[in-house]
Design a protein around this nucleic acid. Structure first.
Lengths: 163, 163
DNA sequence: CGCTTATGTCAGTACTATTGACATAATTGA
DNA sequence: TCAATTATGTCAATAGTACTGACATAAGCG
């Protein structure tokens, strides 16, 4: 049914190469997120909760608008999930001092604990994959991923975040 | 706010390296799927429809059960989406000859056209990223992605599909 | 013929995300 | 100072994804 794979036949077609790339990304992402989803399901949370916990942990004091930019979702979408996290005390909001319209977001200790639980599994996954693949491969992975991103995200990724 | 990035400071911490990896995968996947999602929204479809179209196109005559294995979802989840695709004539079902319990799936011409539209954008994205990154980077990307996958998916990916 | 397999369906629940409309408070610029 | 803009929040409706549990049918198999 299936044609020979690249690894079997080095003289692959370009077409086959690109198809493989798509599938590599699909399967990797699927498995990368699966374990976290299971942990989140315990407290009736979903992947969106993890993303918020992650980026708030990454940029403590981030204003809501910046978080929206990073996640690329609407404020209405964010609102439901963020409200839950605030209500259940995973995230704390503080009024901005420089601009009092802003709500700056911070993880509580409870939030930090859950974030760590969720992300540590993913870090271990990458740590193992990086170790097996080696430094050259890591740099290659990095280059390809940056090439897949939209220019806007790539730019933000490569330059220090101005906040 | 942000610490210096790896690219700025080669003496990065391991921790920072892993955090970057997570974000690379997140942003790349997000942008990789965004355009297809927009196309799908036109006909009231979602990402799940694309996945079915993709894998049915990839393995013409695939039985429902094999598709479930690849997608890692329940038959109830598949059913809703697959039924729609069959009803709207993107996918055709044929009773298996070897095992008449099986429903073998094929893309119709309409299905092939939509699949091509959706996947071609993703192929172009990878073609550009691969070209920019170079052959060594591509091999690195491949290694890291395989390392991120679960063992089961990796095994299936690396060995010819027996159908 | 009884057990298992492949597939399908009904029902209920939960999570993610969108558009559109409207509201409030704070900042900013003319 | 006042009008416009910005940051944030909320209500409501809609749509897509996915799960668990239960039940059903047809076909393969020993």
């Amino acid at each position: 049914m299936a044609e020979p794979k690249t690894i079997v036949n080095p003289l692959f077609l370009r077409e086959d190469d690109l198809r493989q790339a798509i599938e590599l990304l699909f399967f990797a992402y699927r498995d990368f997120t699966a374990r976290g989803d299971a942990i989140l399901a315990r407290q009736h949370f979903g992947r969106a909760h993890h993303r918020i916990l992650y980026f708030v942990g990454r940029y403590p004091g981030i204003p809501v608008g910046d978080l929206l930019d990073i996640l690329n979702i609407t404020k209405q979408s964010l609102s439901r999930v963020l409200s839950q996290l605030v209500r259940e005390e995973y995230v704390q909001q503080k009024t901005g001092t420089r601009d009092r319209r802003q709500r700056l977001l911070y993880l509580t200790d409870k939030g930090k604990a859950l974030e760590r639980e969720l992300t540590s599994e993913q870090r271990m996954r990458f740590a193992a994959a990086y170790k097996d693949a080696g430094a050259v491969a890591v740099e290659g992975f990095r280059k390809v991923m940056l090439g897949i991103m939209d220019a806007k995200a790539r730019k933000r990724f490569l330059s220090p975040f101005e906040t």
